[in-house]
Design a protein around this nucleic acid. Structure first.
Length: 550
RNA sequence: GGCCCGUUGGUCAAGCGGCUAAGACACCGCCCUCUCACGGCGGAAACGGGAGUUCGAUUCUCCCACGGGUCACCA
């Protein structure tokens, strides 16, 4: 048997010249401090970067960089059919945009690091060394089944209510003689390499996942494909070989991989390797009608990272929201350390929830308002401008041409102990401050019908008469009170609330008359500030035109 | 269908055998206040169900229900 296995290995992989030993030497153990985590992101280059990638990326990145370890990028391009040109660039760009930077691995212009190549298709020869070894040891064998045969098998299994898959009596090529194999090979039939599973579904294995805790799984009895007919490995085989040779200590991935974990464990064991620690992250869920489901690439635009960019969420907001989902104590930490860099937060996988989390848009907006409220006016201006130039060109041009006004408007109520929180996404800036620019100013709201138009007009005219841009805020406000008092509006809010029926209204209403005239809206930031930024001429012009339409 | 994971207020979540079961978002009320925003105070709101183990279960075990994931030469 053993001689047969060796002969088969030679027959299948005549060109392999490297040995497992030489590869071990080529990729030695990393010399890192005690407890250093080596992890990776291993996406397939589909051109679509989603929240799940980021969640996994943040987790890996924190674990590595908090421990003095290494984070690398490996491109899982084993499925040529799904590959999209330029996807690697898109991915690297998107992740670095969110602060995920790699220490080694695939880069835009090649590889960086001693454990490459980091693109799986370029590692073909490496996989074949181990494929040959497994065959020689009787742990893998070629299978010549066609797609049709396989699907026929699946149907029969369905009819017999048997478990699906290539195993036991269904594994047609499992114990074939070398003569049969030779014959098939001579006919030029395509073949895949399958794992010779020694597992039984009757057996349970115990395993501890760093996030899920202790698990009891069923042993794998399926002879999974190791190498596809083009000689390129499947995910499973590549995972074992790469993570071993690249000296990965922690594998962070979505929990959709949990069902194949028993197989991976078997593979590591068959190859004689210690398996890495695993962290299986629960999925991001969303409400769909009354039920929940995993966020889907096809149906949910909010899964794509580009969505947040075009909506105008600062990258920090998305990052901090996700950090809060991963480690819920992050929120408390952030409140206590409003200005500290996120890297100061002690991230722990132990705080991660084993279940999936529902994506909460309202929460994201709240986080984002807080993030933006901590920024300087300058920063808000720059980021709004950057966003607008890309997604709202007209607004972008206005911001660019009116930098001073924009900057001063963003500065209203900013920087203090209790900053305004009006903006969750850059898009909000337009509604918030559009009236500051003549191009966007329009009267959107109207006066409450309970007010007499003559009173409104009188108040506006009185304001025009007494308005002096040199007034202090107190002087300005005193004048408004006086105007109101003269026409029967209470100047003192407390007195007004005590007996509202004694007055036509209050000083708040007089302010509102001005506010609608000047900003076109019922709500706005501080009127005194707004007026001083707009300037006397513009303020007068707007009030005059309001008196004309009344 | 097989296998696996999960289940604390509307949502995110603390909790890890004994608590009046944190906190945040959203919601409601009040206060502050020239509107809004901010801030302050308060309110409503939860351990899926059933058996065990235990002096005592949200916490441990089992069963059920529900939800999710996975069963490819895709990752």
């Amino acid at each position: 048997m053993n001689t047969d296995c060796n002969a088969l290995a030679e027959l299948l992989f005549p060109d392999v010249c490297d040995t497992p030993e030489s590869l071990e030497q080529r990729f030695p153990q990393r010399e890192l401090q005690e407890g250093a985590v080596v992890s990776r992101m291993a996406p397939s280059p589909t051109g679509f970067v989603h929240l799940g990638n980021l969640v996994q990326g943040i987790t890996s990145e924190r674990l590595c960089h908090q421990s003095g370890g290494v984070l690398y990028l490996r491109v899982e391009d084993t499925d040529a059919k799904r590959e999209v040109p330029g996807a690697v660039e898109v991915l690297i760009e998107a992740l670095s945009h969110y602060g995920i930077c790699f220490d080694e691995g695939a880069t835009v212009d090649g590889d960086c690091g001693d454990y490459g190549p980091y693109r799986q298709r370029q590692r073909r020869d490496i996989y074949h060394v181990y494929a040959k070894k497994l065959v020689a040891e009787g742990k893998a064998y070629p299978c010549f089944c066609t797609e049709d045969e396989l699907s026929a098998m699946h149907e029969r299994q369905e009819a017999e209510k048997a478990n699906f898959g290539y195993y036991g009596k269904w594994a047609l090529w499992r114990d074939r003689s070398i003569e049969d194999i030779k014959a098939a090979l001579d006919e030029g039939k395509p073949w895949v390499l399958r794992f010779y599973s020694q597992g039984f579904v009757e057996n349970k294995i115990k395993f501890t996942d760093l996030i899920k805790g202790s698990l009891e799984l069923t042993e794998n009895d399926i002879d999974h494909v190791l190498l596809k007919s083009d000689g390129i490995p499947t995910y499973h085989f590549a995972h074992a070989v790469d993570d071993h040779l690249m000296r990965t200590t922690h594998v962070v991935r979505g929990d959709e991989w949990l069902p194949s974990l028993p197989f991976h464990l078997q593979l590591f064991s068959a190859l004689g390797w210690k398996c890495p620690k695993y962290l299986h992250i629960g999925p991001l869920i969303k409400m769909d009608g009354d039920s929940k489901r995993k966020l889907s690439k096809r149906k949910d635009p909010e899964l794509a990272l580009t969505y947040y960019r075009s909506e105008g969420f600062p990258t920090e907001s998305v990052y901090e929201y996700l950090m809060g989902v991963l480690n819920s104590n992050f929120e408390d930490w952030r409140r206590a350390n409003p200005d500290a860099p996120v890297a100061d937060f002690k991230f722990s996988y132990k705080k991660m929830n084993p279940a999936g989390s529902l994506f909460d848009y309202a929460k994201l907006c709240d986080v984002s308002k807080n993030v933006i409220s901590r920024m300087s006016a300058q920063e808000v201006y720059e980021k709004t401008l950057q966003w607008a130039l890309e997604y709202d060109a007209d607004f972008g041009a206005i911001l660019k041409d009116n930098k001073d006004i924009a900057l001063r408007t963003f500065a209203i109520g900013r920087g203090g102990k209790k900053p305004r929180k009006d903006i969750a996404v850059w898009k909000d800036a337009k509604d918030y401050m559009g009236f500051m620019f003549s191009e966007l100013f329009e009267v959107k709201d109207s006066y409450d019908e309970r007010f007499d138009k003559a009173d409104i007009k009188a108040a506006l005219n009185a304001f025009l008469e007494t308005y002096d841009p040199a007034d202090s805020q107190q002087e300005w406000f005193d004048k408004i009170k006086a105007i109101g008092e003269r026409i029967g509006f209470c100047p003192d809010m407390k007195a007004y609330k005590a007996s509202p029926e004694s007055y036509k209204g209050s000083v708040a209403d007089i302010s509102m008359f001005l506010r609608v005239a000047v900003t076109g809206k019922l709500n706005s930031p501080d009127m005194y500030e707004v007026m001083s930024i707009l300037g006397q001429d513009e303020v007068r012009k707007r009030i005059v035109s309001m008196t004309e339409v009344l």
